[in-house]
Amino acid sequence: MHEILKIEGLSAGYGPLRVLHEIDFSVQEGERIGLVGLNGHGKSTLMRSVMSLVGWQNGSIRFKGQEIGGARSTGAGRRTHAIVQLGVALTPQGDAIFPGMTVAQHLDCGAHSKLAWRQRAQRRDAVMDIFPPLRKLESALVGTLSGGERRMVSVGRALMTEASLYLIDEPSLGLAPKISKAVLEALFALPKAGKAMVIAEQNVALLAGRVDRMVGMHAGRLRGDVGHVALS
C-alpha cells in the first residue's frame, strides 16, 4: 500500500505551551482513520499542524513523499494555501465559513484552483448529491443556515478541492445526533480509492465499525492503534 501521510517526531504548540510531544503517525492510501480522544488532548492541533496552522511546530511531515513540515520561521498559515493545493483538505472545528456568501459561492471557493474553477458546476453538483439538503439552499446566505447545514457546507467546500487526504475535525460537534449521523454517513459513503480520510471525534460510538483504524490520543501523545473497534 502507498503511504499518503507520514509524520515523524512532530511537536507543536502555541507560544510557551507544548501540545504535541514527538508524534509518529502515518496514513495509508485508501484508509479511513478515526482519531479519538478527549477535548484538549491535541486532536485538532495534530490536524492543524499538518496544515501549518499552529503557533510553532517541528518534526517531519511528509505528504506523498514531499516534506510539508519542519520548523518554520514564518507566521502560521503562510504555507497553508500551498499545502491545500498539494491535496490536503481540512474542515476545521467551527467550520471557518464565509457568512456573507451564498452556498454556491462558498462551494466555489473550494474549487478555487485554476483547474478546478472550470469544472466548478459539475463539482458543485457532485457535492449536492452527497449532501442533498444543500440543493435547495444553493442561493441562501451561509450565515443564515443551521448548524448542520453549515457543517455540510464546510465539509462540502473541502470535498470541492482536488484533495487526496481529508482531515475532518469533529464532524459531530454541536449537532443533533440525527444530523451528525447523516453527516458522518455521507463521509463514510465517499469512495476511498486513492484517497484517505482522518476523522477526529470524541464520540467513539459514532465511528465504531465504520473506520479501518482507530488511534487514541491522550495528553499530546498517540496512545497506540486501537485497531478495529466494534461497539454495539
Binding site: G77, V84, Q85, F98, M101, C109, H112, R157
Partner: peptide, 12 residues
C-alpha cells in the same frame, strides 16, 4: 469574511 477559511480553500 474569514481569513482562515480562505487559506483552507487554497487562497494565499
Amino acid at each position: 469574511q474569514n481569513p482562515e477559511g480562505a487559506v483552507l480553500s487554497g487562497i494565499s
